[in-house]
Structure formats: C-alpha cells, structure tokens
C-alpha cells in the first residue's frame, strides 16, 4: 500500500496542468498505479497542507513505441485530478526541472 510519500510520483507541469490549476483549482499528478483516490487525497493534504475537495483518477495506457520492427509499450500509469476546496492557496511546485 502506498504511503503519503510514494502515492504521488510527480506533478504534471504542462499547459493543461497549469491551466487547470489556474482556472479550476485542480492539481494534476502522476500517481502510483496502486494508489486509490483516498490515498491520493490524504497524500496531497499531508504534503501540501491544503484541504482536498475531490479526487478523480484515470488509468493511462502506455503508448506504443517502435524501434524499427520491434514494438514495445511505454509503461501504463495513473493520473489523478485533485480539486482543492474553494479558497485554498495553490501550492507552488518547488522544482520543475
């Protein structure tokens, strides 16, 4: 079972991710595939010291990658949209490198 430190793998810092953060108060994370919505919620609350409204998750299937004739797949991963309660301060991601 993932702990608060292993549930969240990284924030998704992309155009979409930042736009959702600005307009909908929603953070997007790449989370451990085994993590439940509840675990993600607890992890976000613990790590960023904020209140979470809801969590929606999606399993993203890995894309096919080819090296010539050989086909393979990027790993599957789980994405979590975490909406914070109204009026919560948006956390700053420390690093985006």
């Amino acid at each position: 079972m993932p702990t608060v430190y292993t549930a969240i793998r990284r924030p998704l810092i992309t155009e979409k991710g930042l736009a959702k953060k600005e307009t909908e108060g929603t953070l997007i994370f790449d989370v451990a595939p085994g993590a439940t919505k509840n675990e993600v919620k607890q992890a976000v609350e613990a790590l960023f010291k904020v209140k979470v409204e809801t969590v929606r998750t999606a399993n993203v299937l890995g894309k096919e990658r080819r090296r010539g004739q050989y086909a393979g797949y990027k790993p599957d991963w789980k994405k979590a949209y975490v909406r914070l309660k109204k009026g919560e301060k948006m956390p700053e991601y420390v690093s985006n490198l």
């Binding site: 998704l12 810092i13 992309t14 155009e15 991710g17 930042l18 690093s95 985006n96 490198l97």
Partner: peptide, 17 residues
C-alpha cells in the same frame, strides 16, 4: 520545455527554469 508548445510556456515556469 516538455509539456508546453513552443512560445506557450508561462512566465512563471520560464523564470524558474
């Protein structure tokens, strides 16, 4: 920067990076 189209990266990301 991965995740952003060229020219569409927000200033906050740029100035940190």
């Amino acid at each position: 920067i991965p995740g952003f189209r060229p020219g569409k990266v927000p200033d906050s990301v740029i100035s940190k990076r």
